[in-house]
Simulated scan of single mutants.
Amino acid sequence: MAKLTSEMKDLISQAFPFIATVDEDGNPQIGPKGTLRVMDDEHLIYNEETGRQAWHNLQANHKIAVAVHPYPGKIGLRVEGYATIYKDGPVFEAAHQYAVDNQLPDLIAAVVISVDRIVSLNAGPDAGTEIANEPVSDQFKI
């Protein structure tokens, strides 16, 4: 897997993230995920609370992208990876505790995103530059 630097982790914690998924017909969907946060150097996590479009899409296709770009700002990044869904166990319990600690709605599941590819969303000539591309397996290569 690709690794997030401390600067990237700081950016993710400061920006409001959006996730992108696709449905079974290949139609794209993008929306905010206010609970998205860094889990470790190689994973992001968010609490799935609504069970709507992104949740529906992840049932059929686990590929996912996260975009963060603080406004006003000239730096940003996109993380692409594979979503693993947890409905119980230690990962789910930690996400549940996060919801309790932050007075958030209860969650349907914890969604962990592997950091397989990182792309610059910086304004200017570096926009779209691939920073890292290390998928867990070619099966999940984006």
Rank of each mutant, 00 (worst) to 15 (best):
M1T: 01
K3Y: 12
K3L: 13
K3D: 08
S6N: 10
E7Y: 11
E7P: 00
M8W: 04
M8V: 00
K9A: 09
D10S: 09
D10N: 14
L11E: 10
L11A: 04
I12P: 08
S13C: 04
Q14N: 11
Q14C: 02
A15G: 05
F16T: 00
I19Y: 09
A20T: 06
T21L: 13
T21S: 15
T21E: 13
D23W: 07
D23K: 02
E24H: 12
G26L: 02
P28A: 03
I30R: 12
K33L: 07
G34M: 05
T35C: 05
L36V: 01
M39Y: 15
M39G: 05
M39V: 00
D40K: 02
D40C: 04
D41F: 08
D41A: 12
D41C: 05
H43A: 02
L44G: 03
L44D: 06
I45L: 15
N47D: 12
N47F: 04
E48F: 07
T50S: 15
G51P: 03
R52L: 13
Q53E: 11
A54V: 00
W55S: 08
W55N: 06
H56E: 11
H56K: 15
H56A: 09
L58S: 06
A60R: 07
H62Q: 13
H62R: 13
H62I: 00
K63S: 12
K63C: 02
I64T: 05
A65N: 02
V68I: 04
V68L: 07
H69L: 08
P70I: 01
Y71I: 00
G73K: 06
G73D: 10
I75E: 15
L77E: 04
L77I: 08
R78I: 06
R78E: 15
V79C: 12
V79A: 09
E80K: 14
G81Y: 10
Y82C: 07
T84F: 11
T84Y: 14
T84S: 12
I85Y: 14
I85F: 13
Y86W: 15
Y86K: 06
Y86P: 03
Y86D: 10
K87S: 10
P90I: 00
P90E: 13
V91P: 11
F92S: 03
F92H: 11
F92Q: 04
A94T: 05
H96V: 06
Q97E: 12
Q97M: 10
Y98I: 00
Y98Q: 06
Y98W: 14
Y98H: 14
A99I: 00
V100K: 14
D101S: 01
D101N: 05
D101L: 01
N102V: 01
N102D: 07
N102Q: 05
N102T: 01
Q103N: 14
P105T: 01
D106N: 11
L107R: 10
I108G: 10
I108W: 14
A109N: 10
V111A: 09
V112M: 15
I113R: 08
V115Y: 14
V115H: 13
D116T: 00
D116F: 06
D116L: 05
V119I: 15
V119Q: 10
S120Y: 01
L121H: 12
L121V: 01
N122E: 11
P125N: 09
D126F: 04
A127D: 04
A127Q: 04
A127F: 15
G128M: 01
T129E: 15
T129K: 15
I131N: 04
E134W: 09
S137A: 08
S137H: 06
S137R: 02
D138H: 07
D138A: 05
Q139S: 07
F140K: 08
F140S: 07
K141R: 14
